[in-house]
Design a protein around this nucleic acid. Structure first.
Length: 168
DNA sequence: GCCAACGTTGGC
DNA sequence: GCCAACGTTGGC
């Protein structure tokens, strides 16, 4: 029997818009990751991200951008209905029920890192220095993370891997 | 606030 | 299909 291979992702958010604390405060600590309007990120949301995948929550566009928490995917890609709302910030007149164009996933809060992992810190770490998010000019708001990077984040944060339950 | 990097748009 | 102009992202 073949089990789904868990994948890992980094998702950016501007904390004054939606922060890790906002996610933790949501009902069921779960929110839909809406408003992504970039095709490459859309493709990840629509095609690649699956229930159970791990998410590194990254705060962007602040003085000290950093990975601040971890979350998990609780619903795979489905149409982002905010594209259909003409009064919303994420309205896209080209989108329709039949052709949603944009997709989102649901993510649930797992943990806040005891200390945010800043870019400066990441850049000094032998494994984490390779993360896509550090690449100059990388604007992708949803990007893949390797399992090695995922485990390194948890290790340096002093957290146990939430997907490893006892044993092993 | 600056500006480099990038994605998108639209004229041709 | 090319590419210049433009808008946005996001670190600094």
């Amino acid at each position: 029997m073949v089990k789904h291979q868990r994948h890992y992702w980094l998702m950016k958010s501007e904390p004054h818009c939606f922060s890790i604390d906002d996610l933790a405060a949501e009902p069921n600590q779960t929110a839909c990751w809406d408003g992504v309007r970039n095709y490459q990120a859309r493709n990840f949301l629509r095609d690649a991200i699956k229930v159970g995948d791990g998410v590194l929550f990254y705060h962007s566009n602040i003085a000290k951008p950093a990975i601040v928490g971890v979350a998990e995917v609780t619903r795979a890609g489905y149409p982002d209905h905010t594209a259909l709302d003409p009064n919303g910030d994420h309205f896209d007149p080209r989108a329709s029920e039949d052709n949603p164009i944009w997709y989102m996933v649901d993510v649930r809060f797992l943990a806040k890192l005891p200390v945010p992992l800043t870019r400066d810190f990441l850049a000094e770490h032998p494994v984490l220095a390779t993360m896509d998010v550090l690449r100059k000019g990388n604007r992708l708001s949803v990007q893949p993370v390797t399992e090695v990077q995922w485990q390194a984040v948890l290790q340096v944060a002093g957290l146990s891997d939430p997907f490893v339950t006892g044993g092993a």
